[in-house]
Lab assay of single mutants.
Amino acid sequence: LKKVVALYDYMPMNANDLQLRKGDEYFILEESNLPWWRARDKNGQEGYIPSNYVTEAE
């Protein structure tokens, strides 16, 4: 899975979204639905995130 790091905080707009915290790492599960990607956080929560809020992890 592709790993990304959040560049900004993101508060979910609806139940399908995943909250982002700046500096945290996330795994990308699906990239087909631009600009929204399906992601999983370190706690196993899954949801959609804005792809322009993250960058690929080193």
Rank of each mutant, 00 (worst) to 15 (best):
I28K: 02
K3A: 05
G44C: 06
A57W: 13
N16M: 13
L7V: 08
Q19R: 12
A6N: 00
Y8K: 11
E46I: 10
P50N: 12
E25L: 14
E56K: 10
Q45I: 12
A57K: 12
A57E: 09
G44Y: 04
D9F: 03
N52R: 11
D17F: 15
L34M: 13
M13Q: 15
M13K: 09
K2T: 07
K22W: 04
Q19Y: 08
Y26E: 00
E30Q: 08
N43M: 12
L34D: 15
K42F: 07
L20Y: 01
Q45M: 13
M11W: 13
T55C: 10
P50F: 09
K2N: 05
K2W: 07
D24N: 08
L18V: 03
K3R: 13
V54C: 05
R38N: 05
L29G: 02
K2S: 04
P12R: 04
Y53D: 02
K42H: 11
L20F: 02
A39Y: 01
E25N: 08
N16W: 15
G23V: 01
G47L: 01
V4F: 07
Y53H: 08
K22E: 07
Q45R: 14
Y8S: 07
A6V: 02
V4Q: 02
Y48H: 06
M13N: 12
L1V: 10
F27C: 07
A57Y: 13
Y10P: 00
S51A: 14
R40C: 07
D9C: 04
M13R: 09
N16T: 14
E31R: 08
R38D: 02
L7A: 04
L18Y: 01
A15P: 14
Y8R: 13
Q45F: 12
Q19F: 07
P50Q: 06
F27M: 09
V54W: 02
W37G: 02
Y26D: 00
L29H: 03
Y10A: 03
M11L: 13
P35G: 15
N33Y: 10
S51M: 11
E25D: 06
Y8G: 05
A15I: 12
N52Q: 10
A15E: 13
R38T: 08
S51K: 14
L7M: 10
F27N: 04
L20P: 00
Y48A: 05
R40G: 03
F27V: 10
E46M: 06
L29T: 06
M13L: 14
K22L: 06
Y53M: 11
N52Y: 12
A15R: 12
N16I: 08
D17Y: 15
N14M: 09
M11C: 12
L29P: 02
P50C: 11
N14W: 09
D41C: 03
Y48Q: 07
N14H: 14
E31F: 12
